[in-house]
């Protein structure tokens, strides 16, 4: 009985839920903001929630409602939304070897955001294989659910909330860099990786600082990859 309880998919899902809680520090303020921005752009609360539930990709959702509000042609709105989301193409293959085969992946992969990917790539190799499916379901469903609820709350009470607790919106998002730092830190295993990772972090920060946040992730990763392949450190040999 105890053995059965230890291998229960629900137990594994709860483990995923628990470990995804730090992600919410970033999801809640951003989803609140999206709800607020969407209603200001003329969308109803339910329409904003539908966009969050269906597209479920932060930056592209802001771009979507912004372009629609500005009266851009819909083909261009779709093209730009997909262009921003194209970075997701490399996430799945990195997790393919870590997750079991299942007929549920076509809909479960909907939950593969930047943050869920980062968490999964760090945690899945540390988990026993039978726990991984449940863990991914728990972590991704929590993030998705909070994203939708946050959008709805933001659409109905976003202005009141941000006016009452102005610091909350600044402090909570810090959970994201703190979490990602704990994921990246163990990968500084040698000089080559340290240089490539540092180059990527600095490039992403600079791209964001100068307003290129929509393309910062793929461009910075490309900078890091170039750095990784171009720079090779030679190991010193002691001559006898």
């Amino acid at each position: 009985m105890n053995h059965f309880a230890n291998h229960s998919p629900i137990r594994h899902a709860f483990k995923g839920v628990r470990e995804a809680i730090p992600l919410l520090g970033g999801y809640i303020p951003v989803s609140l903001s999206f709800g607020l921005v969407a209603t200001q752009a003329g969308f109803s609360m339910w329409e904003a929630a539908a966009i969050s539930a269906l597209i479920y990709a932060g930056a592209s959702q802001f771009l979507f409602v912004g372009m629609v509000a500005a009266g851009s042609p819909l083909w261009l709105v779709i093209a730009m939304t997909l262009l921003i989301n194209v970075r997701h193409v490399v996430y799945g293959p990195n997790l393919a070897a870590l997750l079991p085969r299942s007929r549920h992946w076509p809909w479960l992969m909907h939950g593969l955001t930047d943050q869920v990917f980062a968490l999964a790539l760090t945690r899945l190799p540390q988990l026993p294989a039978p726990e991984r499916f449940g863990w991914f379901v728990g972590a991704s469903l929590l993030a998705w659910g909070v994203w939708i609820i946050g959008t709805m709350v933001g659409a109905t009470a976003g202005e009141t909330l941000t006016a009452r607790w102005p610091l909350l919106g600044e402090v909570m998002p810090f959970a994201l860099p703190a979490l990602f730092l704990t994921m990246v830190a163990p990968r500084f295993t040698d000089k080559r990786w340290a240089l490539a990772l540092s180059c990527t972090i600095i490039a992403a920060l600079l791209f964001t600082f100068f307003g290129w946040s929509n393309v910062a992730i793929p461009l910075a990763a490309a900078c890091g990859a170039i750095c990784f392949y171009m720079v090779k450190f030679q190991t010193r040999r002691c001559n006898p």
Binding site: N94, G169, V184, R187, A204, F207, A216, A220, F228
Partner: peptide, 21 residues
């Protein structure tokens, strides 16, 4: 290259999220 790009994508997400609100 795909195995290298994975950790670099996490580092890029870190870099983007460092920017204060």
């Amino acid at each position: 290259w795909l195995g290298i790009l994975g950790p670099l994508m996490i580092a890029a997400v870190l870099g983007v999220s460092i920017m204060p609100v």
